[in-house]
Amino acid sequence: MLRNSLILGLVAVFALALFTIFSEYKTPETLNRTAQYYNENEVSQVGAANVVTAVVVTYRGLDTLGEVTVLFLTASVIGFILRRKKKGEPVVKADKGSEILSTASRILFPGSIILGVYVFVNGHLTPGGGFQGGAVIGTAILLIALANPEFAVSRKVLHWLESLSGVTYVIIGLLGIFLAAGFLDNRILPLGDFGHLLSAGAIPIIYSMIGIKVGAELSGIITDINQTKTNLS
C-alpha cells in the first residue's frame, strides 16, 4: 500500500506541475518571431508549398539527419539483439494467415507501396513526406509478413537500399556547402515553378531518400521481430 500511495502522490505532483501550463496559458494573438520568419520567408527562400516540410528538411535539416541516424541505430540494435544463434536454425513456424488475409495482402501490397512512394515524392506540396511514406511502405511489408510468415525481404537488399539512400542524403547535404549557402541547403538545384512536382530545389530528392531509408529501416525491424524464434517453444 505504501508503494501505491507513493505512486499516486508522485503522479499528483507531476499533474499539478503540468497543470500550471493549462491554467496560465493565454492564447497568443500572433505567431512568435521564429514562426513569423518561417511563414513569411519560406516560399522565397525554400519554395515548398508545405512549410512543415521546409522546416523539417531545410531549416532543421541537421535535426532530421540525426533522427534518421537514431532510427538506423535502433534498427541495428534490434537486429543485433535478435540475431539467430545458428545459421541453419529454421525460422519460426507460425501459422499461415487465413485465405482472406493472404489474398487481400496480395492485392493491397502494390497499392500500398505506390501510396507510400506518392506520399514521399509529394512531400513538399501536400501533407506527408519521407516519414509517413516510409511508414506506409513498412505497413505494406508487415501485411505480407502477416499473411506469409516465411516471407522475408532479403537483408542484403534492405541494407543496400538503406546505406545508399543515407549516403546520398549526406552527399546532397555536403553539396550544399559548396554550391549553396550551407549544409543541406536545397538551392543546389533551381527552385523551379512554385507548386509543381519538380520544384523547391533538392527537397523532393532529399525527402525521397529519407522515405526509402525510413521504409527500409522499418521493414528491417518488422522482419527481424517477425522472424525471431523464441528459443523456449
Binding site: N39, E42, V52, V55, R60, G129
Partner: peptide, 19 residues
C-alpha cells in the same frame, strides 16, 4: 501565409518525435 497559418515548428518537432 503568416496571417492565416499556425506555427510550423512544433509540428516539425512532433513529426520527428513520433518516429
Amino acid at each position: 501565409l503568416s496571417q492565416v497559418a499556425v506555427d510550423p515548428v512544433p509540428q516539425a518537432l512532433v513529426l520527428t518525435a513520433i518516429v
